[in-house]
Design a protein around this nucleic acid. Structure first.
Lengths: 406, 406
DNA sequence: CGGCGCCATGAGAGCGCTCTCACGATCGAG
DNA sequence: CTCGATCGTGAGAGCGCTCTCATGGCGCCG
């Protein structure tokens, strides 16, 4: 269906990755402010024309190589010691000032700060971590196949919220996708070895072992979405999926639609189950019922489910898709079947993803404030890290965003 | 335009975040495998009903609090020392085995490995980092406002590629958005303090100071996209934007379109400039010319630009938008103007983002293999970190993906 | 059989920091 | 003026690891 045609390159060169000459010396030998590295064995192999391989190091080799590396690395980052000597005080006192302790004369305080500023001193995190058992690192972990994460704006929006919440603090976000069991074990090792201060876990299917494992390793955890099986001591932040499902049902019913259906998410996630039960529950309250087809939150599954629905019940006139992506898939199926939205079939989605507003007709959907959720997750996790308090789970209200599709 | 309507909550409660009782003890006091934390002052404040604030800690406070925290943290993670004693060897020998050095008898080797396995030993990264000056951390930095990052799939796809490339190694990705100057300084501090091993910088506008700053701090850097101003010792990976622009022009011209225009990206980025010059260059070769309107890669700017173009030259029949998002914006403007795609106006985008295939009509676009680029960036950065070699910049060919819109 | 070299191992010195403890100076109370 | 409390400061002990250097055992050559 799609024709592909290779680009000729700027100068119409042959069909492969181009390597540009120049643009910087091939051998590094630069000098830094307070750090000097000297590239020893040049090996400025000019080629590497095709995709450069990471020549299959294992994690093991990576460190091994470093050890074997004869390159002289001159350390010269300013240390607390040097700050102290410049300021004419002891290391202890300098440390006191820099970590904000009281019990310091204003005079010495100023002297130390001036010295630190002058030297461009920055606390060495490794050393600090070694003492404090705190790394200043929080992980944002997604337990989905990579494609899913990146196709669904949902996760990256949550990541954004978490990043924003953490941005002001001296905490950094480590990003990880943990899909396979091997990934998970690798991540667990990292968490334990890296003194990861805590982790936000998003999109856990079924009874995923990760929360329990991290918990057991003494690492505070918070979940995005209610877990299928509760884990003691692990809190979560979820949107009000049941309420959202209800809103969707009400919207369709109030709009006069009578032959209704829902395309659910994967049944091993509470988000899917709750949206479904909210939808069906609200219909039941109104003395109605609806068809149910299972999807997996992806656009393709939405299209397939809708196609199936249209085949089963050609007179269907209202659909609630448990994600916007599935709703858009449904859009395609409906259009392909020659029907129109919303005249023939009304569609309600879930998420209010950026796409919802841009498609035509605009997608009526249930908004869950994902960015806020991400921020809330980070904030509460920090709280738990700080003093061990495990806050109660939070349910964030969903709201209907009415556009043209229903 | 959009009506909003609040969700009633599962139980039709009032209009605010709901706090659930239960779901885990409010006070943490759990015991870990080899790590015990005891939550001292309970303060299980049940409220936090609205959006919980991070009660304004500075980076400073965060660590200060920790210091002031009287909570007894019993360290009991197995150390190299304990592994050694279990295996009946010295710490040095245990270390040798665990870091893969040779010069160890098979017998002792096995003994150490068994002991390590038994104790669930994991190398303490802080301690290792302190010695090796290597953190095992690589940053993926985006120098854009947050919205941009998250609205444009481009970046997250690159992040995905980088993550994939790094996943096998014992290296973790630190994710950061650096937009404001304050962000940048904070990040620089982190980089220097955290012994960040290297950084991938994406989407730099103009002559951004970050690469130079990191470079000066001795931290290897690689750029996604050619920088406007070259930085000595800093390599990059870019798609062949000029070639891509040419392909777009050729496609439109070959399709018989004669009244052409391009919607460019922001002129402070080479990606935008190169696509534009490729497009105009190819037209020039064919003895033609085209209108130019500047956008900023976002959908909204594409819509605005297209609206402007249609007003200026109502008879326009072919447009090259320098990003898919802008192309979709153009779609809207064209449709809103009552014209049809591709009959009245043909549109070519750039990126082949996931959206391109799903819109109707399908968007003809220039594919740049962003995921691969992300991976390549990570691989080359690792190479530089490893031995100081700065590889030559790489240009990755773009290719035309033909769909219905042109 | 003495001596040389090689090799596996252990002892120990830090990496840069935090934090405890001891010490001298200052101060108010008796 | 003396005594204990208070306070700012310095000395120093590690955190857990890597890596250098010394050591002692063994094989090999002369």
């Amino acid at each position: 269906m799609n024709q592909h045609q290779r680009s000729p390159g700027s100068g119409f060169q042959p069909n492969r990755a181009l390597v540009l000459g120049g643009g910087g010396p091939a051998v590094a030998s630069w000098t830094a402010g307070w750090w000097v590295q000297i590239a020893a064995q040049a090996d400025s192999s000019p080629g590497c024309g095709t995709s450069p391989e990471p020549d299959g190091w294992s994690a093991f080799d990576w460190h091994h190589r470093r050890m074997a590396d004869p390159r002289p690395v001159v350390r010269s980052a300013p240390t607390l010691e040097s700050v102290a000597s410049v300021a004419g005080v002891s290391r202890a006192t300098a440390g006191r000032v820099l970590s904000g302790a009281s019990n310091v004369t204003e005079r010495t305080r100023e002297a130390v700060l001036r010295a630190a500023d002058e030297l461009g001193y920055v606390t060495n995190r490794a050393a600090r971590a070694l003492m404090t058992q705190r790394s200043g690192l929080i992980a944002f972990v997604v337990a989905e196949p990579e494609e899913r994460f990146f196709n669904d704006p949902h996760f990256s929006l949550a990541l954004r919220g978490a990043h924003a919440a953490v941005a002001k603090l001296d905490v950094q976000l480590v990003f990880s996708i943990v899909h396979l069991d091997a990934d998970r074990r690798k991540f667990e090792r990292f968490a334990r070895a890296g003194h990861l201060d805590g982790a936000i876990l998003a999109s856990l299917h079924g009874d995923h072992p990760l929360p329990r494992a991290l918990q057991a390793a003494g690492i505070p955890v918070i979940l995005m979405g209610r877990p299928l099986v509760p884990v003691a001591g692990v809190s979560y932040v979820s949107s009000d999926n049941v309420g959202g499902g209800r809103l969707a049902a009400a919207r369709l019913a109030d709009g006069g639609r009578t032959r209704l259906a829902t395309i659910t998410g994967p049944r091993d996630m509470t988000a899917a189950l709750d949206r479904e039960s909210g939808f069906l529950g609200e219909l039941a309250v109104r003395g109605r019922s609806g068809l149910v087809v299972e999807g997996d939150f992806s656009m393709e599954s939405g299209r397939a489910a809708m196609t199936e629905l249209l085949a089963t019940r050609p007179d269907i006139d209202g659909v609630f898709a448990a994600s916007d992506l599935m709703a858009l898939g449904a859009f395609q199926a409906i259009t392909d079947a020659g029907r129109s939205i919303p005249e023939d079939v009304a569609v309600v989605g879930f998420d209010d993803s950026p796409l919802a507003a841009t498609v035509r007709p605009g997608l009526t959907t249930i908004r869950q404030p994902v960015v806020d959720m991400g921020a809330t997750l980070a904030q509460r996790l920090l709280r738990t890290i700080e003093d061990g308090t495990v806050l109660d789970p939070v349910l964030i209200p969903a709201e209907l965003v009415a556009r043209e599709s229903a």
